[in-house]
Design a protein around this nucleic acid. Structure first.
Lengths: 149, 149
DNA sequence: CATGAAAGAATGAGCAG
DNA sequence: CTGCTCATTCTTTCATG
């Protein structure tokens, strides 16, 4: 799908605050709210907008620790290994990467004890991985949602 | 702030689809929409809900490549180095980590050429870093927003 | 936490440039 | 093809018990 400047302006607003009323978006970009409605609908249908999500403070719901986990996957075990990782609740992202690791996970846990359980009991000793490294996130200095638009 | 099961149910719905009308949330959790309104407002004020964001498909807006970048920061240069990283448009997340790297970035770029420019011209040769490694994300197998609730 | 009412927003049809 | 106007329905929001 081809996006014009109006589409991009709408995306920028919704990326920043997904609950902005169409009527206010319309005011800001100087179009009618029916037009905003049309365009948002088309971008949703085309998969340009993949969804709308509330950002929930992880600590507030009891998840105090996050980490990035690098994994080496044994040859031929890839599909099976990924399948099992997806089923672990603390695993929030699974990226296939070049470089030192085949797979990098983002995981969350209630505390460091639970992270240890997650890593030792469920991931590091899981069949199909030959090596792992846990990089605990001490803090997130900066974070913006999605791509620049 | 203390969250009860009703709050958590609301969070789960908004985390999944931040544009769900309060009236529909109310129907699903069997409460009045005024109550949903109150609770959402309180969770926003308390910082439990940090915002609402549209997920925009990066490729659709011209960003075809993402990578994780590990960096070693020279002693005493931390603040200055982070400051400059935050100003680079392609840098979307900056995490301080334990383990092999002091800092891990998530970056996006239009294509591999632009990623190379970003890495060589702007990051790797930036003052204050002694070592870097770029792990290109070949694909994201799985991704869920935020913590489990 | 609910009710109820006023204000505001979403939505879709049909029309105009 | 694109955006607008208009009318209906639904939603938000807030004062009150």
């Amino acid at each position: 799908m081809e996006l014009d400047d109006t589409d991009r302006a709408i995306l920028r607003i919704l990326q920043e605050d997904a609950r902005t009323p169409f009527s206010e978006i319309a005011r800001r970009i100087d179009m009618s709210s029916a037009t905003v409605h049309d365009r948002v609908g088309r971008m949703e249908d085309a998969g340009v907008i993949e969804g709308y999500h509330a950002s929930v403070n992880a600590k507030a719901v009891g998840y105090g620790v996050s980490a990035l986990v690098g994994l080496r996957v044994e040859q031929g075990r890839e599909e099976d290994a990924l399948e099992r990782l997806r089923e672990i609740e603390g695993v929030r992202e699974i990226h296939l990467t070049t470089g030192e690791w085949d797979v990098i996970l983002r995981v969350v846990a209630e505390d460091t004890d639970r992270l240890r359980d997650l890593m030792f009991d469920r991931i590091a000793n899981m069949d199909g991985f030959s090596r792992s490294q846990t990089m605990i996130i001490l803090g997130t200095d900066y974070e913006v949602e999605g791509p620049p638009i």
